[in-house]
Write a protein that binds this DNA or RNA. Structure first.
Lengths: 119, 119
DNA sequence: TGCAAAGGTAACCAAAAGGTAACTGGTTGT
DNA sequence: ACAACCAGTTACCTTTTGGTTACCTTTGCA
């Protein structure tokens, strides 16, 4: 991310250290920037939440979306899935330490968003 | 964002303060989370940059993408577009104060991304 | 004379994303 | 018996996204 533009004696411009393909900001965004991903992580911040409770909390997102995002987060070890009972089957989703490490960024984003009332 | 789930005496679960439609994190993500948007803002952090220089710096993004993102950012007053010379036409893009206010989040994201080597 | 660079714009296309609704299969409450 | 709740899954369809290529106008350089 130290990309800069060099100008030679003839005024010709070339870039050094260009972001060929996704640089770190892009890559990070692809992890926490998916639709509803940030919101899901944020809603897990106070402890484990069950699948249908997440669905209820995220009124605008479909079960399919939430399911998909939870699987992605699980695959990245940001979230754990735990079956807490058969019988009336119940499943808890919780943040891992790694998942929790993203919370600060998300909270800053929330504050930024609210204080600039982003529409 | 204080969504919680309430359980009544009969075990019925309902959510209060659910995120009906995008909550603040979602809305924020839609502003700085678009493909290449964060990278563009970040590359403007040291001062104005010309269009084709941005294109060169962001090796993986097409002119069309960059053009599109710049227009979105301009519409949100995060970036200004200034023609600095007719003759050999040149255009500078620069962050506004509001645009600059997003830099901290992006830099935190970059650091998070790098220290967890996100792929 | 003819190419290259500047800052775009336009047209076209393929792929991915995301919404809806129905369905599963087991359990419990009335 | 009937409905509802759990945690998903599946199929279908529409929209959005993003890549590619070509093109435009003006100016400068060799």
């Amino acid at each position: 991310m130290k990309a800069r533009v060099n100008v030679d004696e003839r005024g010709r411009r070339t870039a050094s250290d260009a972001c060929l393909e996704p640089c770190s900001i892009e890559r990070g965004m692809r992890v926490i920037g998916g639709k509803w991903t940030g919101s899901i992580i944020y809603h897990l911040k106070d402890g484990p939440v069950r699948f249908n409770d997440l669905v209820r909390m995220l009124g605008g997102a479909s079960k399919k979306m939430i399911d998909q995002r939870l699987k992605e987060l699980e695959a990245r070890n940001m979230v754990t899935r735990t079956v807490i009972s058969e019988r009336p089957i119940a499943v808890n989703y919780a943040l891992t330490d790694f998942g929790r490490s993203a919370l600060k960024i998300l909270d800053d984003l929330r504050i930024w968003s609210e204080s600039n009332n982003i529409t």
